[in-house]
């Protein structure tokens, strides 16, 4: 008995603990493959969420890293308590997407989703610390249908006419979202204060068609119109066209164009 105890004690003293030297904490990352595919980071957020500004900072960092290859869209779903209150940045489209990925009233914020696709374990939601790794993995998939978008704004009618062109696949849907940038309003901050002049970026305001998941793709592209919601500032609005897999709504490609400029995004190699 005592011998067993001695052997086990000595064995356990050899148990591992790895301490990483400060100079070795960062490792280089292979460059992502070139592709014309654009990826979408859906950021679920709310003005009452004190930790959401940290997630927004992550999104900004990733946007600066991947530029036109990444489109960030902030969704404020009405069915989560972090969005409830005087300041309403919600819209039905955001709630539909939120419920589709399994969001409930008890889902903690901030959280996000890449390309409306789950990870290997079936989880849609990822903490913002994990967005970078998920994007890196998503960017390894370079195959995608081509996509372009042109839009014309009728300022008097507050209507945007859009034309979406794409290479057709049978099992594909096309969606069109309107997002608004730089909405200045209240945001709870990590230090307990409320920033009344916080710039809410890329907020989903509405979607064309009856659902944010769009309509089946046509052989000759898709044309549609969106009315700007009340209070939307067209100068800060963009249209985002999405190609979705019809079976699971994974985003296959995306394209964004600002309403204040005519024409298109830079082509990706």
């Amino acid at each position: 008995m005592q011998r067993i105890f001695s052997i086990l004690s000595i064995a356990f003293l050899l148990a591992a603990c790895e301490v990483i030297d400060p100079a070795d904490r960062l490792l280089p990352v292979d460059a992502v493959p070139q592709s014309s595919r654009r990826h979408v980071l859906l950021e679920f957020t709310g003005f009452r969420c004190v930790n959401c500004p940290s997630a927004e900072a992550t999104a900004v960092e990733l946007q600066s890293l991947y530029a036109e290859r990444l489109i960030v869209i902030a969704l404020h779903p009405a069915s989560n308590p972090f969005t409830k209150g005087v300041y309403d940045y919600t819209c039905p489209a955001a709630d539909s997407v939120y419920r589709f990925v399994g969001g409930t009233a008890s889902t903690p914020f901030p959280t996000g989703c890449i390309n409306l696709a789950p990870d290997a374990e079936g989880h849609y939601f990822r903490d913002h610390e994990l967005w970078g790794a998920a994007l890196l993995l998503a960017m390894q998939d370079t195959l995608c249908p081509s996509l372009s978008l042109t839009a014309t704004l009728d300022t008097l009618m507050r209507r945007v006419d859009a034309r979406i062109n794409y290479s057709t696949r049978d099992d594909m849907r096309v969606a069109l979202w309107l997002v608004e940038d730089s909405i200045v309003g209240a945001q709870a901050m990590p230090d307990g204060t409320v920033n009344m002049t916080y710039p809410h970026r890329h907020v989903l305001r509405t979607a064309a068609f009856d659902t944010p998941f769009g309509v089946p793709a046509q052989t000759d592209g898709t044309a549609t119109s969106i009315l700007l919601p009340d209070g939307c500032d067209a100068a800060h609005c963009s249209l985002v066209a999405l190609l979705l897999d019809a079976t699971n709504y994974h985003i296959l490609n995306a394209y964004e164009t600002k309403l204040s400029t005519a024409g298109s995004m830079p082509d990706l190699p």
Binding site: I20, L26, L27, V29, E61, L65, G132, A133, L136
Partner: peptide, 13 residues
């Protein structure tokens, strides 16, 4: 797990 330093991506060791 990625991070960015000076605008460059790195992964944590």
């Amino acid at each position: 797990i990625l991070t960015t330093v000076g605008g460059q991506p790195y992964r944590y060791h």
